[in-house]
């Protein structure tokens, strides 16, 4: 954290190349987050480039007292993802593969079917629930940080995650078992 603030100070003092350290550190979570929120595999790297470019331009407005750099960067990522989704419905329902008929999760085919159903269920989640699910379950961010990114209370985040899991769970009534 302190090291990061030092890097940011260097960038603001004119050492542009130091920004590469931040890009290399956060490129994976940022691209992954965009990909999982927008379902847009093709343009997620372009959106991520825009995220880092915006972060660079607005770096002076980052206030370490108000939160971590990662939270600030993920907030930009969230906003860019929402904008990208507004511009283009990344994966329309007609593009989703046909549903299969497998009910047995104990073989490879059924596992693929399970994955496909989960992908489909995730893409059908309301945008707010999907973002929170991605941040909590896939990025493993603490609820407090997600609350800061989303600009809501921790209780709201918990409730959105519960609702997202419930929706995912109901998509799999055909399978025996449960989602923890």
């Amino acid at each position: 954290m302190r090291q990061e603030i030092e890097v940011i100070r260097q960038i603001l003092d004119g050492d542009t190349e130091s920004f590469r350290l931040l890009v290399e550190r956060y490129e994976r979570p940022v691209i992954r987050m965009i990909r999982n929120i927008t379902n847009d595999i093709e343009s997620c790297e372009d959106i991520a480039q825009d995220v880092f470019f915006t972060a660079y331009r607005k770096l002076a407005s980052f206030d370490p007292v108000r939160g971590n750099f990662s939270t600030w960067l993920f907030t930009i990522t969230r906003n860019k993802s929402i904008n990208a989704m507004k511009k283009k419905r990344a994966l329309s329902m007609s593009e989703l593969p046909e549903e299969g008929d497998s009910h047995n999760p104990y073989d490879e085919v059924a596992e693929k079917e399970f994955f496909r159903r989960l992908d489909s269920a995730l893409s059908k989640l309301p945008s707010r629930q999907k973002r929170v699910f991605v941040l909590a379950e896939l990025e493993k961010l603490p609820y407090e940080e997600i609350a800061q990114i989303e600009g809501v209370r921790v209780g709201t985040i918990k409730s959105r995650i519960n609702r997202a899991k419930k929706r995912l769970r109901t998509s799999f009534k055909v399978f025996k078992g449960d989602i923890s």
């Binding site: 590469r20 890009v23 490129e27 691209i31 790297e45 989960l118 923890s180």
Partner: peptide, 27 residues
């Protein structure tokens, strides 16, 4: 078990390949 498959799905969602030139392009 179903929760193992769910865990495997989450692992797959987390896996990511980024083009090597990504940071160069941003810079």
């Amino acid at each position: 078990k179903i929760d193992e498959v769910y865990g495997a799905w989450k692992d797959e969602k987390v896996r990511i390949d980024i083009r090597e030139s990504f940071s160069d392009e941003v810079m």
